[in-house]
Nucleic acid binder design. Structure first.
Length: 473
RNA sequence: GCCCCCAUCGUCUAGUGGCCUAGGACACCACCCUUUCAAGGUGGCGGCACGGGUUCGAAUCCCGUUGGGGGUGCCA
């Protein structure tokens, strides 16, 4: 608990954690920490249709993954909106008693009919002065006052709304339960929230909420509406169409640091990016520099390609032992760790995500004497030239005679052979690589052979030789 | 329909009236390096939506147009 400004992040539990939510959480978190304030987590669980207890843990875990730790002194919560239901209702009743709200007994169909007749788009304020009291099936509506509501937004400046365009919105449903608008405001008031930083889609709600704050006798908070994240069609990222689950990116081998860094570059630029020629920035740097005033006003496309580029950078920046540990976790349990450790430095700079690791090194873990699965396209290309088979033959002989089985010796031996064919290393290594790994691309060849060992290397070379002979014949 | 927001390279952005012949990042292309593939280096392609103002001067200010997006529930 701190005395500074109080921010809040108020997701509704829906099963997976949206990357857009992660971004706004990060915004709130950066500000709360830098300003010596508090990040309040509130679970908006009042919609019973979509709410399960395990979703809450999912949110906490997701936040922890991106560095928003419930153990941090700047973190408060989780609070549950459902636990404040009595306060929501009480506030609504108070509004009724003050005359700021009134009951209405019109059904949805009736409202639509009236609107159609009157040429309006929504509720016409039919019950404003009918003096109805509470009763079953009656909703409580807020009496929107005349005038103009000006929302002061930290990212957009002043946004004004003509109150006449805002209909008298519902506070309490026919069954007496509160709706989001009032629940949200009452919670924010109860929790002493000073800054509401959320996605732009909430901007149209804001005048209504501001009126509620005022009617309830409080100064509205500082509002800030950050632009939404969109897909390639420029539509708001949605769970239905788009890949938005943070957990999914995590499972696909994306690093939290890369995700956080990338998310923060959407709508904002880390300091010094232009001078350094890089948008890579550590969280402390980001936290120290992030300001709502600097956030862009237009929606940003969530570009997985760029995320992947960041991820590759972050993998390369990892200390080797950390890389070995984390990449090793992606490997099948039965694969020999020492063997992986030996090849690890050679694959670290060749990755985009951690989950690619097994495919990069699998040839080192095939059981001895098992048949090699060749990629046919690679094979055909590597053995197309007529020198390929004789060269492989010579390499097999030369490697059989190698005294010290290490990368340098293996390279020298191949260079001796290829000289006879007047080939360059780039070409000469191709048949050897395909023979041993089954593919035309992979980690540096001689290091791979060193790790693979003499026995398997010779055996695979020999197998390939036979196959090449069979095909030639 | 109505309300609100937005508009710089394909994408993310820098830019707050002269420093802009518009800068960087991702992507793409070429070259270099090279043991394949990467990584790295160098270079290139590519943008201020349009039209009016204001001003000595506009990417930057104003108006309009067009185009996008969001909201418009007894969901959150």
């Amino acid at each position: 608990m701190t005395n500074g400004p109080r921010f809040r992040f108020a997701p509704s539990p829906t099963g997976s954690f949206h990357v857009g939510g992660a971004r706004t959480a990060l915004h709130n978190w950066a500000l709360a920490r830098r300003l010596g304030g508090t990040f309040v987590l509130r679970i908006e669980d009042t919609d019973e249709a979509r709410n399960r207890p395990e979703w809450t843990q999912g949110i906490i875990d997701a936040l922890a993954w991106i560095g928003i730790s419930a153990d941090d002194p700047h973190f408060e919560g989780p609070h549950f909106q459902s636990e404040y239901a009595a306060a929501h209702v009480a506030a609504a009743h108070r509004l009724f008693e003050q005359g700021d709200a009134y009951y209405c007994d019109l059904s949805g169909e009736q409202i639509q009919e009236r609107a159609k007749e009157l040429g309006l788009s929504g509720y016409d304020g039919h019950s404003r002065d009918r003096g109805l009291g509470p009763g079953p099936g009656r909703v409580l509506r807020f009496r929107v006052p005349d005038g103009i509501t000006v929302v002061n937004d930290l990212v957009r400046g002043e946004v004004s709304f003509e109150n006449s365009t805002i209909e008298d919105f519902v506070l309490l449903r026919g069954n007496g339960t509160p709706v989001f608008l009032i629940a949200n405001v009452v919670d924010d008031i109860e929790m002493g929230i000073t800054h509401v930083v959320r996605a732009e889609e909430h901007l149209p709600n804001t005048p209504k909420q501001q009126m509620l704050w005022q009617a309830l006798g409080h100064e509205p908070p500082q509002w800030a509406h950050v632009p939404v994240l969109v897909n390639e069609q420029r539509k708001k990222l949605s769970k239905r169409r788009d890949k938005v689950a943070l957990e999914q990116y995590r499972d696909e081998g994306f690093l939290a640091d890369a995700m956080v860094n990338y998310l923060m570059t959407l709508g904002w630029t880390p300091p010094g990016a232009e001078e350094s020629g890089s948008e890579i920035a550590s969280w402390p740097e980001i936290e120290a520099a992030f300001r709502l005033e600097d956030v862009t006003h237009s929606p940003a496309f969530f570009d997985v390609k760029k995320l992947a580029a960041f991820n590759g950078d972050y993998i390369r920046m990892m200390p080797l032992d950390e890389f070995i540990e984390r990449a090793g976790a992606e490997l099948p349990i039965e694969w020999d760790r020492a063997r992986f450790t030996a090849i690890a430095p050679h694959i670290q700079e060749r990755l985009t995500t951690l989950t690619e690791v097994p495919d990069k090194v699998d040839f080192l873990f095939w059981p001895d004497d098992s048949p090699i699965e060749y990629d046919e396209a690679s094979w055909d290309k590597a053995f197309a030239a007529d020198w390929a088979r004789p060269l492989l033959d010579d390499v097999l002989e030369a490697y059989g005679a190698i005294a010290e089985w290490n990368a340098d010796a293996l390279k020298v031996a191949l260079e001796d052979v290829m000289a006879r064919y007047e080939l360059k290393l780039g070409k000469a290594q191709a048949p050897v690589r395909v023979a041993v790994t089954g593919r035309s691309v992979g980690p540096p060849l001689f290091e791979s052979l060193e790790v693979l060992g003499r026995y398997e290397t010779l055996r695979r070379l020999s197998d390939a030789n036979e196959r090449a002979a069979a095909r030639a014949g």
